[in-house]
Design a protein around this nucleic acid. Structure first.
Lengths: 258, 258
DNA sequence: CCTTTTAATTAACAATATGTTAAATGTTAA
DNA sequence: TTAACATTTAACATATTGTTAATTAAAAGG
Protein backbone atom coordinates (compact mmCIF):
# COMPACT_ATOMS: atom_id res chain seq x y z
CA UNK A 1 0.00 0.00 0.00
CA UNK A 2 1.38 3.40 -0.93
CA UNK A 3 1.75 5.90 1.85
CA UNK A 4 -0.33 8.18 -0.31
CA UNK A 5 -3.51 6.52 0.75
CA UNK A 6 -5.36 5.25 -2.28
CA UNK A 7 -8.84 6.11 -1.20
CA UNK A 8 -7.88 9.74 -0.88
CA UNK A 9 -7.21 9.82 -4.61
CA UNK A 10 -10.72 8.81 -5.57
CA UNK A 11 -12.76 11.40 -7.34
CA UNK A 12 -16.19 9.90 -7.53
CA UNK A 13 -16.95 11.62 -10.79
CA UNK A 14 -14.37 9.48 -12.64
CA UNK A 15 -16.09 6.23 -11.83
CA UNK A 16 -18.95 4.54 -13.58
CA UNK A 17 -21.96 4.31 -11.33
CA UNK A 18 -24.49 1.50 -11.08
CA UNK A 19 -27.66 1.69 -13.20
CA UNK A 20 -29.84 0.75 -10.26
CA UNK A 21 -30.02 -0.52 -6.72
CA UNK A 22 -32.85 -2.90 -5.92
CA UNK A 23 -34.18 -4.65 -2.88
CA UNK A 24 -35.52 -8.19 -3.25
CA UNK A 25 -37.43 -10.08 -0.61
CA UNK A 26 -37.82 -13.79 -0.07
CA UNK A 27 -41.09 -13.96 1.85
CA UNK A 28 -41.32 -17.16 3.85
CA UNK A 29 -44.34 -18.48 5.61
CA UNK A 30 -45.17 -21.76 7.26
CA UNK A 31 -48.55 -23.20 6.44
CA UNK A 32 -49.86 -25.52 9.08
CA UNK A 33 -52.32 -28.15 8.27
CA UNK A 34 -54.44 -29.48 11.09
CA UNK A 35 -54.49 -33.17 10.19
CA UNK A 36 -57.15 -33.81 12.79
CA UNK A 37 -58.52 -32.22 15.95
CA UNK A 38 -56.45 -32.33 19.12
CA UNK A 39 -53.22 -33.20 17.32
CA UNK A 40 -50.05 -31.31 16.45
CA UNK A 41 -50.14 -29.62 13.04
CA UNK A 42 -48.14 -30.67 10.01
CA UNK A 43 -46.08 -27.67 8.94
CA UNK A 44 -44.52 -26.82 5.59
CA UNK A 45 -42.12 -23.97 4.83
CA UNK A 46 -43.22 -22.03 1.78
CA UNK A 47 -41.88 -19.15 -0.27
CA UNK A 48 -44.05 -16.47 -1.83
CA UNK A 49 -43.27 -15.70 -5.47
CA UNK A 50 -44.89 -13.43 -8.02
CA UNK A 51 -45.33 -14.23 -11.68
CA UNK A 52 -43.96 -11.62 -14.04
CA UNK A 53 -46.51 -10.09 -16.40
CA UNK A 54 -46.46 -10.96 -20.10
CA UNK A 55 -46.48 -7.29 -21.06
CA UNK A 56 -45.35 -4.12 -19.40
CA UNK A 57 -47.70 -1.18 -18.89
CA UNK A 58 -47.08 0.08 -22.42
CA UNK A 59 -48.08 -3.24 -23.95
CA UNK A 60 -44.57 -4.28 -24.91
CA UNK A 61 -43.36 -7.79 -24.16
CA UNK A 62 -42.00 -7.78 -20.62
CA UNK A 63 -38.53 -8.93 -19.73
CA UNK A 64 -38.44 -12.42 -18.17
CA UNK A 65 -42.20 -12.58 -18.78
CA UNK A 66 -44.17 -15.43 -17.26
CA UNK A 67 -41.37 -16.50 -14.98
CA UNK A 68 -41.69 -16.54 -11.22
CA UNK A 69 -39.67 -13.99 -9.29
CA UNK A 70 -39.04 -12.56 -5.85
CA UNK A 71 -41.00 -9.43 -5.04
CA UNK A 72 -38.87 -6.32 -4.89
CA UNK A 73 -38.15 -2.98 -6.45
CA UNK A 74 -35.81 -0.07 -6.74
CA UNK A 75 -34.34 1.62 -3.69
CA UNK A 76 -34.46 5.40 -3.50
CA UNK A 77 -31.62 7.58 -2.16
CA UNK A 78 -33.72 8.51 0.88
CA UNK A 79 -34.03 5.00 2.22
CA UNK A 80 -32.02 1.88 2.96
CA UNK A 81 -32.63 -1.36 1.09
CA UNK A 82 -34.18 -2.72 4.25
CA UNK A 83 -36.57 0.23 4.50
CA UNK A 84 -37.37 -0.25 0.83
CA UNK A 85 -38.11 -3.93 1.40
CA UNK A 86 -40.41 -2.98 4.23
CA UNK A 87 -42.12 -0.35 2.09
CA UNK A 88 -42.59 -2.71 -0.85
CA UNK A 89 -44.09 -5.37 1.37
CA UNK A 90 -46.54 -2.84 2.71
CA UNK A 91 -47.37 -1.31 -0.70
CA UNK A 92 -47.71 -4.60 -2.49
CA UNK A 93 -49.13 -6.82 0.17
CA UNK A 94 -50.29 -4.63 3.01
CA UNK A 95 -47.97 -6.47 5.37
CA UNK A 96 -46.33 -4.37 8.09
CA UNK A 97 -44.14 -4.88 11.08
CA UNK A 98 -42.68 -8.22 10.16
CA UNK A 99 -39.23 -9.68 10.64
CA UNK A 100 -36.82 -8.75 7.82
CA UNK A 101 -33.21 -9.79 7.49
CA UNK A 102 -30.61 -8.89 4.92
CA UNK A 103 -28.70 -11.96 3.75
CA UNK A 104 -26.85 -11.23 0.53
CA UNK A 105 -25.89 -8.94 -2.30
CA UNK A 106 -26.10 -9.94 -5.95
CA UNK A 107 -23.84 -7.97 -8.24
CA UNK A 108 -22.54 -10.48 -10.76
CA UNK A 109 -21.92 -8.62 -14.05
CA UNK A 110 -24.68 -9.47 -16.52
CA UNK A 111 -27.13 -10.72 -13.90
CA UNK A 112 -29.75 -8.25 -15.11
CA UNK A 113 -29.97 -7.58 -18.87
CA UNK A 114 -31.22 -4.05 -18.19
CA UNK A 115 -27.83 -2.93 -16.94
CA UNK A 116 -25.55 -2.81 -13.91
CA UNK A 117 -28.10 -3.43 -11.23
CA UNK A 118 -27.17 -4.40 -7.71
CA UNK A 119 -29.68 -6.39 -5.74
CA UNK A 120 -29.72 -6.40 -1.98
CA UNK A 121 -31.61 -9.48 -0.84
CA UNK A 122 -33.61 -9.97 2.35
CA UNK A 123 -35.77 -12.64 3.75
CA UNK A 124 -39.03 -11.96 5.54
CA UNK A 125 -40.98 -14.14 7.90
CA UNK A 126 -44.73 -13.76 7.70
CA UNK A 127 -47.03 -15.76 9.96
CA UNK A 128 -49.61 -17.58 7.90
CA UNK A 129 -52.60 -15.58 9.11
CA UNK A 130 -51.07 -12.32 7.84
CA UNK A 131 -50.92 -13.76 4.34
CA UNK A 132 -54.52 -14.93 4.45
CA UNK A 133 -55.61 -11.39 5.22
CA UNK A 134 -53.80 -10.23 2.13
CA UNK A 135 -55.18 -12.93 -0.14
CA UNK A 136 -58.72 -12.19 0.94
CA UNK A 137 -58.41 -8.50 0.14
CA UNK A 138 -56.69 -8.75 -3.19
CA UNK A 139 -56.71 -10.30 -6.59
CA UNK A 140 -53.73 -12.58 -6.31
CA UNK A 141 -53.69 -14.48 -9.57
CA UNK A 142 -49.98 -13.81 -9.98
CA UNK A 143 -48.93 -14.64 -6.44
CA UNK A 144 -48.32 -18.13 -5.19
CA UNK A 145 -46.78 -19.97 -2.27
CA UNK A 146 -44.32 -22.72 -3.20
CA UNK A 147 -43.12 -25.35 -0.75
CA UNK A 148 -39.36 -24.89 -0.61
CA UNK A 149 -38.85 -28.52 -1.61
CA UNK A 150 -40.60 -27.91 -4.94
CA UNK A 151 -38.80 -24.74 -5.97
CA UNK A 152 -36.31 -26.45 -8.23
CA UNK A 153 -39.04 -27.21 -10.76
CA UNK A 154 -39.95 -23.57 -11.39
CA UNK A 155 -38.61 -21.30 -14.13
CA UNK A 156 -37.24 -18.32 -12.25
CA UNK A 157 -36.42 -14.82 -13.47
CA UNK A 158 -32.93 -13.33 -13.54
CA UNK A 159 -30.61 -14.96 -10.99
CA UNK A 160 -33.43 -15.51 -8.55
CA UNK A 161 -32.74 -19.23 -8.45
CA UNK A 162 -29.42 -18.47 -6.76
CA UNK A 163 -30.91 -15.86 -4.48
CA UNK A 164 -33.64 -18.24 -3.38
CA UNK A 165 -31.17 -21.01 -2.75
CA UNK A 166 -29.17 -18.68 -0.51
CA UNK A 167 -32.34 -17.49 1.23
CA UNK A 168 -33.24 -21.07 2.11
CA UNK A 169 -29.73 -21.74 3.38
CA UNK A 170 -29.88 -18.65 5.58
CA UNK A 171 -33.34 -19.17 7.00
CA UNK A 172 -32.51 -22.80 7.72
CA UNK A 173 -29.40 -21.84 9.62
CA UNK A 174 -31.13 -19.00 11.44
CA UNK A 175 -34.05 -21.21 12.46
CA UNK A 176 -31.67 -23.72 14.01
CA UNK A 177 -29.02 -21.37 15.39
CA UNK A 178 -31.00 -18.32 16.47
CA UNK A 179 -34.43 -17.79 17.98
CA UNK A 180 -36.16 -16.53 14.81
CA UNK A 181 -38.46 -19.54 14.99
CA UNK A 182 -40.31 -17.18 17.30
CA UNK A 183 -41.47 -15.24 14.25
CA UNK A 184 -43.40 -18.21 12.92
CA UNK A 185 -45.13 -18.97 16.20
CA UNK A 186 -47.77 -17.34 18.35
CA UNK A 187 -46.62 -15.58 21.53
CA UNK A 188 -47.02 -18.82 23.47
CA UNK A 189 -46.69 -22.26 21.94
CA UNK A 190 -46.41 -25.92 22.82
CA UNK A 191 -43.29 -28.02 22.46
CA UNK A 192 -44.82 -29.83 19.50
CA UNK A 193 -45.55 -26.58 17.67
CA UNK A 194 -41.96 -25.41 18.01
CA UNK A 195 -40.84 -28.90 17.01
CA UNK A 196 -43.03 -28.76 13.88
CA UNK A 197 -41.46 -25.44 12.87
CA UNK A 198 -37.94 -26.80 13.24
CA UNK A 199 -38.79 -29.97 11.35
CA UNK A 200 -39.65 -27.88 8.28
CA UNK A 201 -35.91 -27.32 7.85
CA UNK A 202 -34.17 -30.24 9.55
CA UNK A 203 -34.39 -33.98 9.95
CA UNK A 204 -32.26 -33.98 13.09
CA UNK A 205 -33.12 -37.16 15.01
CA UNK A 206 -32.86 -35.36 18.35
CA UNK A 207 -35.52 -32.88 17.27
CA UNK A 208 -37.76 -35.58 15.78
CA UNK A 209 -37.77 -37.48 19.06
CA UNK A 210 -40.87 -36.30 20.95
CA UNK A 211 -39.89 -37.34 24.46
CA UNK A 212 -36.37 -35.99 24.13
CA UNK A 213 -37.55 -32.69 22.67
CA UNK A 214 -40.29 -32.21 25.27
CA UNK A 215 -37.72 -32.80 27.99
CA UNK A 216 -35.10 -30.57 26.38
CA UNK A 217 -37.34 -27.54 25.89
CA UNK A 218 -37.59 -27.19 29.66
CA UNK A 219 -33.86 -26.61 30.04
CA UNK A 220 -33.29 -24.19 27.16
CA UNK A 221 -32.06 -20.87 28.56
CA UNK A 222 -33.95 -18.82 25.96
CA UNK A 223 -37.36 -20.43 26.52
CA UNK A 224 -39.53 -20.45 29.61
CA UNK A 225 -42.70 -22.28 30.55
CA UNK A 226 -45.65 -19.97 31.04
CA UNK A 227 -46.79 -20.89 34.52
CA UNK A 228 -50.30 -22.20 34.74
CA UNK A 229 -51.06 -21.69 31.06
CA UNK A 230 -52.14 -24.66 29.02
CA UNK A 231 -53.84 -25.24 25.70
CA UNK A 232 -55.73 -28.02 23.99
CA UNK A 233 -54.72 -26.94 20.47
CA UNK A 234 -52.50 -29.96 20.01
CA UNK A 235 -53.84 -32.54 22.39
CA UNK A 236 -56.86 -33.50 24.41
CA UNK A 237 -54.58 -33.47 27.41
CA UNK A 238 -54.06 -29.80 28.37
CA UNK A 239 -50.55 -29.00 27.27
CA UNK A 240 -47.92 -26.69 28.73
CA UNK A 241 -47.32 -23.41 26.88
CA UNK A 242 -43.87 -21.88 26.43
CA UNK A 243 -42.53 -18.54 25.28
CA UNK A 244 -39.19 -17.19 24.09
CA UNK A 245 -37.35 -14.92 26.48
CA UNK A 246 -34.62 -12.47 25.61
CA UNK A 247 -31.32 -14.21 26.08
CA UNK A 248 -28.47 -14.09 23.68
CA UNK A 249 -27.39 -17.45 22.43
CA UNK A 250 -23.81 -18.10 21.55
CA UNK A 251 -23.19 -21.72 20.89
CA UNK A 252 -19.84 -23.03 19.74
CA UNK A 253 -19.32 -26.05 17.51
CA UNK A 254 -16.24 -26.82 19.60
CA UNK A 255 -18.23 -27.40 22.76
CA UNK A 256 -21.45 -28.77 21.26
CA UNK A 257 -22.33 -32.42 20.98
CA UNK A 258 -22.02 -33.96 17.55
CA UNK B 1 -50.31 -6.59 -4.83
CA UNK B 2 -51.92 -5.57 -8.10
CA UNK B 3 -52.33 -8.26 -10.69
CA UNK B 4 -50.45 -5.97 -13.01
CA UNK B 5 -47.15 -6.96 -11.54
CA UNK B 6 -45.42 -3.92 -10.18
CA UNK B 7 -41.92 -4.82 -11.20
CA UNK B 8 -42.98 -4.96 -14.82
CA UNK B 9 -43.80 -1.29 -14.69
CA UNK B 10 -40.34 -0.20 -13.76
CA UNK B 11 -38.44 1.74 -16.33
CA UNK B 12 -34.96 1.98 -14.97
CA UNK B 13 -34.38 5.34 -16.62
CA UNK B 14 -36.93 7.00 -14.31
CA UNK B 15 -35.04 6.13 -11.16
CA UNK B 16 -32.18 7.92 -9.53
CA UNK B 17 -29.09 5.77 -9.52
CA UNK B 18 -26.43 5.50 -6.83
CA UNK B 19 -23.37 7.74 -7.06
CA UNK B 20 -21.04 4.88 -6.34
CA UNK B 21 -20.64 1.29 -5.23
CA UNK B 22 -17.70 0.52 -3.00
CA UNK B 23 -16.17 -2.54 -1.45
CA UNK B 24 -14.71 -2.26 2.04
CA UNK B 25 -12.61 -4.88 3.74
CA UNK B 26 -12.02 -5.57 7.41
CA UNK B 27 -8.67 -7.35 7.35
CA UNK B 28 -8.22 -9.47 10.46
CA UNK B 29 -5.08 -11.16 11.58
CA UNK B 30 -4.03 -12.89 14.74
CA UNK B 31 -0.63 -12.01 16.08
CA UNK B 32 0.88 -14.69 18.23
CA UNK B 33 3.44 -13.90 20.79
CA UNK B 34 5.71 -16.69 21.94
CA UNK B 35 5.86 -15.93 25.67
CA UNK B 36 8.64 -18.46 26.09
CA UNK B 37 10.05 -21.49 24.33
CA UNK B 38 8.10 -24.75 24.41
CA UNK B 39 4.84 -23.12 25.46
CA UNK B 40 1.56 -22.28 23.71
CA UNK B 41 1.48 -18.81 22.16
CA UNK B 42 -0.60 -15.88 23.41
CA UNK B 43 -2.82 -14.79 20.53
CA UNK B 44 -4.54 -11.47 19.90
CA UNK B 45 -7.08 -10.69 17.18
CA UNK B 46 -6.20 -7.51 15.33
CA UNK B 47 -7.76 -5.42 12.61
CA UNK B 48 -5.78 -3.65 9.92
CA UNK B 49 -6.74 -0.01 9.33
CA UNK B 50 -5.32 2.70 7.11
CA UNK B 51 -4.98 6.34 8.05
CA UNK B 52 -6.59 8.74 5.60
CA UNK B 53 -4.18 11.26 4.10
CA UNK B 54 -4.32 14.94 5.10
CA UNK B 55 -4.49 16.04 1.49
CA UNK B 56 -5.69 14.46 -1.73
CA UNK B 57 -3.44 14.17 -4.77
CA UNK B 58 -4.24 17.73 -5.83
CA UNK B 59 -3.15 19.15 -2.51
CA UNK B 60 -6.67 19.93 -1.29
CA UNK B 61 -7.72 18.98 2.22
CA UNK B 62 -8.95 15.40 2.14
CA UNK B 63 -12.32 14.30 3.39
CA UNK B 64 -12.21 12.61 6.80
CA UNK B 65 -8.47 13.36 6.84
CA UNK B 66 -6.33 11.80 9.53
CA UNK B 67 -8.98 9.36 10.63
CA UNK B 68 -8.53 5.63 10.49
CA UNK B 69 -10.57 3.70 7.93
CA UNK B 70 -11.10 0.31 6.39
CA UNK B 71 -9.24 -0.28 3.14
CA UNK B 72 -11.50 -0.38 0.13
CA UNK B 73 -12.42 1.26 -3.11
CA UNK B 74 -14.90 1.58 -5.91
CA UNK B 75 -16.29 -1.46 -7.66
CA UNK B 76 -16.33 -1.49 -11.46
CA UNK B 77 -19.19 -2.86 -13.58
CA UNK B 78 -17.02 -5.76 -14.72
CA UNK B 79 -16.53 -7.23 -11.28
CA UNK B 80 -18.37 -8.18 -8.13
CA UNK B 81 -17.70 -6.43 -4.83
CA UNK B 82 -15.96 -9.58 -3.68
CA UNK B 83 -13.69 -9.59 -6.73
CA UNK B 84 -13.03 -5.91 -6.13
CA UNK B 85 -12.11 -6.62 -2.50
CA UNK B 86 -9.74 -9.30 -3.67
CA UNK B 87 -8.23 -6.98 -6.27
CA UNK B 88 -7.78 -4.13 -3.79
CA UNK B 89 -6.07 -6.38 -1.31
CA UNK B 90 -3.67 -7.51 -3.99
CA UNK B 91 -3.05 -4.02 -5.40
CA UNK B 92 -2.64 -2.35 -2.05
CA UNK B 93 -1.02 -5.04 0.01
CA UNK B 94 0.16 -7.73 -2.36
CA UNK B 95 -1.97 -10.26 -0.53
CA UNK B 96 -3.60 -12.96 -2.68
CA UNK B 97 -5.63 -16.07 -2.23
CA UNK B 98 -7.01 -15.33 1.21
CA UNK B 99 -10.36 -16.02 2.79
CA UNK B 100 -12.92 -13.29 2.09
CA UNK B 101 -16.49 -13.15 3.27
CA UNK B 102 -19.24 -10.64 2.59
CA UNK B 103 -21.07 -9.70 5.78
CA UNK B 104 -23.08 -6.54 5.28
CA UNK B 105 -24.24 -3.64 3.17
CA UNK B 106 -24.15 -0.04 4.31
CA UNK B 107 -26.58 2.24 2.52
CA UNK B 108 -27.87 4.60 5.19
CA UNK B 109 -28.70 7.94 3.52
CA UNK B 110 -26.01 10.49 4.37
CA UNK B 111 -23.40 7.91 5.41
CA UNK B 112 -20.94 9.36 2.88
CA UNK B 113 -20.91 13.14 2.36
CA UNK B 114 -19.77 12.65 -1.23
CA UNK B 115 -23.16 11.30 -2.29
CA UNK B 116 -25.31 8.18 -2.46
CA UNK B 117 -22.63 5.60 -2.06
CA UNK B 118 -23.37 2.01 -1.19
CA UNK B 119 -20.72 0.06 0.61
CA UNK B 120 -20.53 -3.70 0.44
CA UNK B 121 -18.45 -4.88 3.38
CA UNK B 122 -16.29 -8.00 3.66
CA UNK B 123 -13.98 -9.42 6.17
CA UNK B 124 -10.68 -11.04 5.28
CA UNK B 125 -8.52 -13.40 7.28
CA UNK B 126 -4.81 -13.02 6.75
CA UNK B 127 -2.34 -15.24 8.56
CA UNK B 128 0.22 -13.16 10.36
CA UNK B 129 3.18 -14.15 8.20
CA UNK B 130 1.47 -12.80 5.07
CA UNK B 131 1.24 -9.38 6.66
CA UNK B 132 4.88 -9.40 7.70
CA UNK B 133 5.84 -9.95 4.07
CA UNK B 134 3.86 -6.88 3.15
CA UNK B 135 5.25 -4.72 5.89
CA UNK B 136 8.81 -5.60 4.99
CA UNK B 137 8.37 -4.65 1.35
CA UNK B 138 6.50 -1.42 1.78
CA UNK B 139 6.43 1.92 3.46
CA UNK B 140 3.53 1.44 5.82
CA UNK B 141 3.44 4.60 7.89
CA UNK B 142 -0.31 4.88 7.39
CA UNK B 143 -1.16 1.26 8.10
CA UNK B 144 -1.57 -0.18 11.55
CA UNK B 145 -2.91 -3.25 13.32
CA UNK B 146 -5.29 -2.55 16.21
CA UNK B 147 -6.28 -5.15 18.77
CA UNK B 148 -10.05 -5.41 18.45
CA UNK B 149 -10.46 -4.60 22.14
CA UNK B 150 -8.86 -1.19 21.60
CA UNK B 151 -10.82 -0.10 18.55
CA UNK B 152 -13.34 2.01 20.44
CA UNK B 153 -10.69 4.58 21.22
CA UNK B 154 -9.95 5.42 17.58
CA UNK B 155 -11.49 8.18 15.48
CA UNK B 156 -12.90 6.37 12.48
CA UNK B 157 -13.94 7.71 9.09
CA UNK B 158 -17.51 7.69 7.73
CA UNK B 159 -19.65 4.98 9.35
CA UNK B 160 -16.69 2.64 9.67
CA UNK B 161 -17.22 2.35 13.41
CA UNK B 162 -20.50 0.56 12.70
CA UNK B 163 -19.03 -1.55 9.95
CA UNK B 164 -16.15 -2.62 12.16
CA UNK B 165 -18.48 -3.48 15.02
CA UNK B 166 -20.48 -5.70 12.66
CA UNK B 167 -17.30 -7.25 11.27
CA UNK B 168 -16.22 -8.23 14.76
CA UNK B 169 -19.63 -9.69 15.52
CA UNK B 170 -19.51 -11.74 12.34
CA UNK B 171 -15.98 -13.04 12.64
CA UNK B 172 -16.64 -13.95 16.26
CA UNK B 173 -19.71 -15.94 15.35
CA UNK B 174 -18.02 -17.56 12.38
CA UNK B 175 -14.97 -18.53 14.42
CA UNK B 176 -17.17 -20.29 16.96
CA UNK B 177 -19.85 -21.71 14.66
CA UNK B 178 -17.96 -22.56 11.49
CA UNK B 179 -14.50 -23.91 10.75
CA UNK B 180 -12.96 -20.60 9.57
CA UNK B 181 -10.54 -20.81 12.48
CA UNK B 182 -8.69 -22.95 9.94
CA UNK B 183 -7.73 -19.77 8.10
CA UNK B 184 -5.73 -18.49 11.05
CA UNK B 185 -3.84 -21.72 11.60
CA UNK B 186 -1.18 -23.71 9.79
CA UNK B 187 -2.27 -26.83 7.94
CA UNK B 188 -1.66 -28.90 11.07
CA UNK B 189 -1.91 -27.53 14.59
CA UNK B 190 -2.01 -28.56 18.21
CA UNK B 191 -5.07 -28.41 20.44
CA UNK B 192 -3.57 -25.47 22.32
CA UNK B 193 -3.04 -23.49 19.11
CA UNK B 194 -6.67 -23.92 18.07
CA UNK B 195 -7.69 -23.11 21.62
CA UNK B 196 -5.64 -19.91 21.55
CA UNK B 197 -7.36 -18.81 18.33
CA UNK B 198 -10.81 -19.38 19.81
CA UNK B 199 -9.91 -17.59 23.02
CA UNK B 200 -9.25 -14.41 21.05
CA UNK B 201 -13.04 -14.10 20.64
CA UNK B 202 -14.60 -15.99 23.55
CA UNK B 203 -14.21 -16.54 27.25
CA UNK B 204 -16.22 -19.77 27.19
CA UNK B 205 -15.16 -21.78 30.24
CA UNK B 206 -15.35 -25.04 28.32
CA UNK B 207 -12.82 -23.75 25.80
CA UNK B 208 -10.56 -22.28 28.46
CA UNK B 209 -10.34 -25.61 30.23
CA UNK B 210 -7.22 -27.31 28.88
CA UNK B 211 -8.02 -30.90 29.79
CA UNK B 212 -11.59 -30.68 28.58
CA UNK B 213 -10.60 -29.04 25.29
CA UNK B 214 -7.79 -31.50 24.62
CA UNK B 215 -10.21 -34.35 25.21
CA UNK B 216 -12.97 -32.76 23.14
CA UNK B 217 -10.88 -32.07 20.04
CA UNK B 218 -10.50 -35.81 19.53
CA UNK B 219 -14.21 -36.34 19.07
CA UNK B 220 -15.01 -33.39 16.80
CA UNK B 221 -16.30 -34.68 13.45
CA UNK B 222 -14.59 -31.93 11.46
CA UNK B 223 -11.11 -32.40 12.92
CA UNK B 224 -8.82 -35.39 12.73
CA UNK B 225 -5.56 -36.29 14.41
CA UNK B 226 -2.67 -36.55 11.95
CA UNK B 227 -1.36 -40.02 12.68
CA UNK B 228 2.22 -40.15 13.83
CA UNK B 229 2.80 -36.42 13.47
CA UNK B 230 3.90 -34.47 16.47
CA UNK B 231 5.49 -31.12 17.12
CA UNK B 232 7.43 -29.44 19.91
CA UNK B 233 6.25 -25.93 19.02
CA UNK B 234 4.13 -25.68 22.13
CA UNK B 235 5.64 -28.11 24.57
CA UNK B 236 8.74 -30.08 25.36
CA UNK B 237 6.58 -33.16 25.24
CA UNK B 238 5.99 -33.96 21.57
CA UNK B 239 2.40 -32.95 20.95
CA UNK B 240 -0.23 -34.43 18.67
CA UNK B 241 -1.03 -32.47 15.50
CA UNK B 242 -4.57 -32.12 14.13
CA UNK B 243 -6.08 -30.88 10.89
CA UNK B 244 -9.52 -29.78 9.72
CA UNK B 245 -11.34 -32.16 7.43
CA UNK B 246 -14.19 -31.31 5.11
CA UNK B 247 -17.39 -31.97 6.96
CA UNK B 248 -20.36 -29.69 7.08
CA UNK B 249 -21.36 -28.64 10.52
CA UNK B 250 -24.95 -27.93 11.34
CA UNK B 251 -25.45 -27.44 14.99
CA UNK B 252 -28.78 -26.52 16.49
CA UNK B 253 -29.26 -24.43 19.63
CA UNK B 254 -32.22 -26.69 20.43
CA UNK B 255 -30.08 -29.79 20.78
CA UNK B 256 -26.88 -28.23 22.09
CA UNK B 257 -25.90 -28.10 25.70
CA UNK B 258 -26.26 -24.78 27.43
C1' DC C 1 24.23 -37.15 35.70
C1' DC C 2 20.62 -35.53 38.46
C1' DT C 3 16.89 -32.42 39.42
C1' DT C 4 13.51 -29.19 38.30
C1' DT C 5 10.18 -27.50 35.23
C1' DT C 6 6.23 -27.72 32.27
C1' DA C 7 2.77 -28.74 28.47
C1' DA C 8 0.58 -32.59 27.16
C1' DT C 9 -1.59 -36.81 28.18
C1' DT C 10 -3.99 -40.23 30.77
C1' DA C 11 -6.83 -41.76 34.52
C1' DA C 12 -10.58 -41.71 37.55
C1' DC C 13 -14.95 -40.35 39.47
C1' DA C 14 -18.96 -37.67 40.34
C1' DA C 15 -22.44 -35.04 38.10
C1' DT C 16 -25.18 -34.18 34.22
C1' DA C 17 -27.44 -35.13 29.75
C1' DT C 18 -29.27 -38.17 26.29
C1' DG C 19 -31.59 -42.32 23.91
C1' DT C 20 -34.86 -45.48 24.73
C1' DT C 21 -38.65 -47.96 26.46
C1' DA C 22 -42.53 -48.06 29.22
C1' DA C 23 -46.27 -46.47 31.93
C1' DA C 24 -49.55 -42.88 33.56
C1' DT C 25 -52.59 -38.81 32.67
C1' DG C 26 -56.64 -36.29 30.97
C1' DT C 27 -59.68 -35.50 27.74
C1' DT C 28 -62.61 -36.55 23.63
C1' DA C 29 -65.59 -39.35 21.01
C1' DA C 30 -67.87 -43.50 19.94
C1' DT D 1 -67.80 -47.43 29.54
C1' DT D 2 -64.23 -47.83 26.58
C1' DA D 3 -60.88 -46.79 22.99
C1' DA D 4 -57.80 -43.46 21.29
C1' DC D 5 -53.98 -40.43 21.72
C1' DA D 6 -50.77 -36.32 22.61
C1' DT D 7 -48.54 -35.30 26.55
C1' DT D 8 -46.14 -36.15 30.71
C1' DT D 9 -43.49 -38.74 33.93
C1' DA D 10 -40.50 -42.43 35.17
C1' DA D 11 -36.67 -45.37 34.87
C1' DC D 12 -32.32 -47.01 33.37
C1' DA D 13 -28.33 -47.77 30.49
C1' DT D 14 -25.07 -45.05 28.04
C1' DA D 15 -22.37 -41.04 26.93
C1' DT D 16 -20.39 -36.56 27.98
C1' DT D 17 -18.53 -33.12 30.96
C1' DG D 18 -16.17 -30.85 35.09
C1' DT D 19 -12.73 -31.62 38.12
C1' DT D 20 -8.75 -33.26 40.34
C1' DA D 21 -4.72 -35.84 40.23
C1' DA D 22 -1.05 -38.52 38.44
C1' DT D 23 2.11 -39.63 34.57
C1' DT D 24 5.09 -38.64 30.60
C1' DA D 25 8.84 -36.75 27.85
C1' DA D 26 11.99 -33.50 26.91
C1' DA D 27 14.70 -29.20 28.07
C1' DA D 28 17.52 -26.54 31.03
C1' DG D 29 20.48 -25.68 34.76
C1' DG D 30 23.48 -27.02 38.06
Amino acid sequence: MKSNNKEAQYDISCYRTPDGYTSDIAVFTITSEQIKAYAPPKMVLKLMLIQRAEQDTEGNPNIEAGKWALPGGFVTPEETACTAASRELEEEAGITGIHLKQFGVYDQPGRDPRGWIISNAHYAIVPEYRLSERKASDDAADVELFPVAELNEQALAFDHKNIIQDAITHITRDLLQTTVAKQFLPETFTYSELQAVLLTVTDDKAIQNDQAFARKIKSLPFIEAVKGQKTQRTSKLPTQLYRFIDAQVKQSIYTARH
